[in-house]
Write a protein that binds this DNA or RNA. Structure first.
Length: 443
DNA sequence: TTTTGAGTTGTTCGA
DNA sequence: GTCGAACAACTCAAA
């Protein structure tokens, strides 16, 4: 059983298949050199989840460092495995990697057996009546719900054998990070869900308020497969809050489906007409990006979000939209710069959701926001953080400003907090002018 | 087959 | 102060 982004034992059909008929299961995790590109916070969380997984199987997990097509093949030969079981990966890198591993195994008479997916409905399965994919979320979500999903399975009764009989490299290095990470591991994820579910009926009312603990905070658990969305869907009902929560899981599956069908859109515009949009990439653009990334734009809600990201590896969804809109429409930078920063720092960073969330904000993607829908960071802050508590938590320089006044420091701006780096009204006009240029050029 | 209306997350302007 | 229109262009499903 080769674990990748499914670091759990319960409701894991690939493990069920591996352990069928009492077969001896050797659990493997390959520390792929590709992980080197990850940010420190992501590496730390992954290492913690692996440690918890290893604990849950009596420290049987075999670590191997290196290219998967070599390491998987070598271990399979060492233990005489006829089959290597995996949960299928639908991402661009994972598909290439798995094709290479499958070919290497096949050359030695072994099989790579893909089972299940990280989704309730596997990417590629939801189609319109004519067989083509949906490009708008709402009709997708109706068809997705109509597909239905299997109930979760119980944890299989696998007999783990303790310390591996074969050579085992050490676990991946666990960087020391200042970030306040979520509790790692399958058990912690289930405890979080059990604690959240009784409050899920309030989801649609409070999910947009970044100062409130009004969401499940299970995004990282879903990303690393500490639990499967089936396990959540099985317990969600039809009330407004539960329906909205289910829709958010649907968005995750929608974007996985889009990326599966169009893998190049991880970093390229889905809508090629938007390739003509003028974006800034000069030295001043890089300077503006650095200010954005550091949380020093002078717009309090933007800076609070960017600092929350650096401090915790997570950012509230409403604020993700605001900082994304700000990067694209106020700073006129390529959405890919922001997407890359998010992937480096988010513990829940998922290529499909991240890239297409950014493309939604940038107006380049599937079912994209109309380009003229430009968030006003101050208006949004006053609406969704009316008491200013979120900003004061993450921007201590502004702690002396009371209530919503924290969103408009103006003349009360402390000396250690920056003045706004751009004027929103002027940059809004600039963004609309650039957009008009694109649409005029295509007529 | 064609038409029609709706579509995650908004803002501004003018009546 | 409130309210509706305008801001683009295209997809999709139902009528």
């Amino acid at each position: 059983m080769w674990f990748r982004r499914d670091l759990r034992l319960a409701d894991l059909p690939a493990l069920d298949a591996a352990a069928a008929d009492g077969a001896h299961v050797v659990p493997l995790f390959v520390v792929d050199p590709a992980f080197e590109r990850s940010g420190e916070v992501r590496k730390a969380f992954m290492a913690d989840c692996l440690s918890a997984l290893d604990d849950s199987m009596d420290r049987s997990l075999v670590y191997r460092h290196g290219a998967p097509e070599e390491q998987v093949t070598r271990l399979a030969a060492e233990v005489g495995a006829s089959d290597v079981f995996v949960t299928r990966d639908y991402g661009p890198y994972g598909r290439r990697r798995d094709a290479a591993v499958a070919a290497a195994l096949k050359a030695e008479g072994r099989r790579l057996v893909g089972v299940d997916s990280p989704y309730a409905v596997q990417p590629g399965a939801v189609n319109k009546a004519d067989g083509t994919p949906y490009r708008v979320f709402t009709p997708f979500s109706k068809a997705w719900r109509a597909c239905g999903w299997a109930p979760p399975t119980q944890q299989p009764d696998v007999e783990w054998h303790g310390a591996p009989a074969v050579h085992c490299d050490g676990p991946p290095p666990r960087p020391e990070v200042a970030a306040d990470l979520p509790d790692a591991g399958e058990l912690a994820a289930h405890e979080r869900w059990d604690a959240y579910l009784p409050r899920a009926d309030t989801y649609s009312d409070v999910r947009d308020l970044p100062a409130v603990d009004g969401t499940s905070r299970l995004s990282a658990a879903l990303r690393w497969g500490l639990l499967h969305p089936r396990q959540l869907l099985a317990e969600l009902g039809d009330g407004t809050g539960h329906h909205t929560f289910t829709n958010e899981l649907g968005w995750r599956e929608f974007y996985a489906d889009v990326l599966f069908r169009r893998p190049e859109t991880a970093w390229r515009n889905l809508n090629p007409r938007m390739d003509a949009m003028a974006v800034d990439m000069d030295a001043d653009a890089r300077r503006r990006f650095e200010r954005w990334a550091a949380g020093m734009t002078g717009y309090p809600i933007i800076d609070a979000g960017m600092r929350q990201l650096l401090a915790t590896g997570w950012m509230h969804n409403r604020v993700r939209m605001l900082v994304a809109s700000f990067l694209v429409k106020d700073l006129h930078l390529p959405w890919q710069w922001g997407a890359r920063h998010f992937m480096r720092h988010l513990v829940d960073g998922d290529l499909a959701s991240n890239s297409h969330g950014w493309q939604w904000a940038a107006g380049t993607g599937t079912d994209a926001a109309p380009y003229f829908r430009i968030f006003n960071p101050t208006t949004q802050a006053l609406r969704f953080d009316p008491d200013g508590d979120y900003v004061r938590r993450w921007v201590p320089e502004l702690a002396g400003l009371r209530g919503g006044a924290v969103h408009k420091p103006g003349l009360l701006r402390p000396a250690d907090y920056p003045a706004p780096i751009v004027d929103h009204a002027a940059e809004r006009d600039e963004a609309l002018a650039r957009y008009r240029h694109v649409t005029a050029g295509s007529r």
